[in-house]
Design a protein around this nucleic acid. Structure first.
Length: 271
DNA sequence: ATGGTTGTCCTACAA
């Protein structure tokens, strides 16, 4: 069975529901993981997704900020929500796929929205950066994020860290910019290694090649200088490494009308 | 150059 799965920080699902519909109609992934939905669950555009054929929906929203969702064409067995750093922020949701979807060996999917961390990369002065670092530490320590043996787990989301030199437009110029500071990149790599995850983008694309999924709104023309960062990630457990058939970043979506600053990132697996 | 833009929801705040 082909399972295509997209992660996309949508920066308000209500404002951009037409862009989401446009994407789903053309790409038709089985599963879409959204971050920064920015609405309470009662305000989520459920009917629109159902009309598009995405009838199975798991929500963890909050008013105005953050918010994650998983919308799916195939049914899931169970849903789980975790909290981090003793906050009620909506930054995680997970589901598992199994018999109901015709999948014999279970698949567990985690969708994350890691704190952005504010502007100043010093945890002593900037509480938001401190929160981000503690959040990453908790991810590393979180036992359910340590798939072992034949466990088939997928972790996606806006992790708000660009871990490698070629995950940013200028390694040198971004070393003191939140998202690419050594303390963050080391903590993200620690989380990856603790779970023995495969970073699908870097498993498929040579380290020497620039790869971005986000371009700031704070420039008149996002294409000038191609000043992007790779903040959105898809990780799979080792048991799924050879199941990966395709990986793509829909860069074009950054040019759509009233776009999100992030673009959809899709993996296709043979499960 | 130390700016710049966007979204939520009403005034700053988070990203």
């Amino acid at each position: 069975m082909r399972l295509s799965l997209t992660t996309w920080n949508i920066n308000s699902v209500r404002l951009r529901i037409d862009l989401v519909a446009k994407f789903l109609k053309s790409a038709r992934p089985e599963v879409l993981c959204l971050q920064e939905t920015k609405c309470i669950d009662d305000a989520f555009p459920l009917k629109r997704f159902k009309r598009l054929g995405y009838e199975h929906i798991a929500l963890n929203g909050q008013k105005g900020y953050h918010g994650v969702a998983i919308v799916s064409k195939i049914p899931f067995e169970s849903k789980d929500i975790r909290t981090f750093c003793d906050k009620v922020d909506s930054r995680h949701i997970s589901v598992s796929f199994g018999d109901k979807a015709g999948i014999a060996r279970p698949l567990v999917l985690h969708n994350f929205y890691v704190p952005a961390g504010g502007d100043i990369p010093d945890p002593l002065v900037n509480e938001k950066f401190d929160h981000k670092l503690r959040f990453l530490d908790e991810m590393t320590a979180c036992e359910p994020l340590h798939p072992r043996g034949e466990d088939r787990h997928i972790l996606v989301g806006d992790l708000n860290v660009a871990p490698h030199e070629n995950d940013v437009w200028s390694h040198k110029q971004l070393l003191k910019v939140v998202s690419h500071t050594p303390v963050e990149t080391e903590k993200l790599k620690a989380a990856l290694e603790a779970g023995e995850w495969i970073d699908v983008a870097r498993d498929r694309i040579p380290m020497s090649e620039k790869v971005y999924t986000w371009w700031s709104y704070r420039s008149a023309d996002w294409t000038v200088g191609d000043r992007g960062r790779r903040l959105d990630h898809i990780w799979v457990s080792r048991a799924l490494k050879d199941a990966v058939q395709d990986f793509r970043i829909l860069r074009d979506a950054r040019s759509w009308e009233r776009p999100s600053d992030h673009v959809p990132v899709t993996v296709t697996l043979e499960v």
